[in-house]
């Protein structure tokens, strides 16, 4: 049995609409939100997470791809599975996200079924 704390999901997403959509789709999950690198590190220090949802198209100095690379090269966080989320449909983005170390790749608009399926897969691992 996984501990409840492992079921926590950290969502890195700066778009308000997307946050609302995740909140609605993931009712029943313990969610935590952050919008940038700064708040991400804060959240990671505060708690343990079973999975991270990372928006690739974050505004600001570091985009989602850079953050994935950073987390994957930090031993403390490298084992947390990351699901990359993007509104870009180019397969190049998929390749880059996978290369950076993302466990899965989702394209917006998010399908609720696929989102939950993907999260569950990551949580089991």
């Amino acid at each position: 049995m996984k501990s409840v704390s492992n079921k926590k999901i950290l969502i890195v997403e700066d778009e308000e609409e997307s946050q609302k959509i995740f909140r609605r789709m993931l009712v029943g999950y313990d969610l935590s939100f952050c919008v940038s690198e700064m708040t991400l590190m804060e959240k990671l220090r505060e708690s343990e997470y079973g999975v991270i949802l990372m928006d690739i198209g974050l505004a600001g100095s570091k985009d989602g791809l850079m953050l994935i690379r950073e987390l994957k090269s930090t031993p403390k966080y490298s084992s947390i599975p990351i699901i990359s989320v993007t509104s870009r449909v180019y397969s190049k983005q998929r390749i880059l996200a996978t290369e950076a170390g993302a466990a899965a790749y989702l394209t917006k608009p998010i399908s609720k079924t696929l989102l939950i399926e993907t999260i569950e897969k990551c949580l089991i691992q």
Binding site: E17, S18, I21, S87, V89, K108, P109, I110
Partner: peptide, 10 residues
């Protein structure tokens, strides 16, 4: 595409 996706989800 982005806003259209939101409309669809909502």
């Amino acid at each position: 595409r982005n806003p259209l996706g939101f409309i669809y989800n909502f």
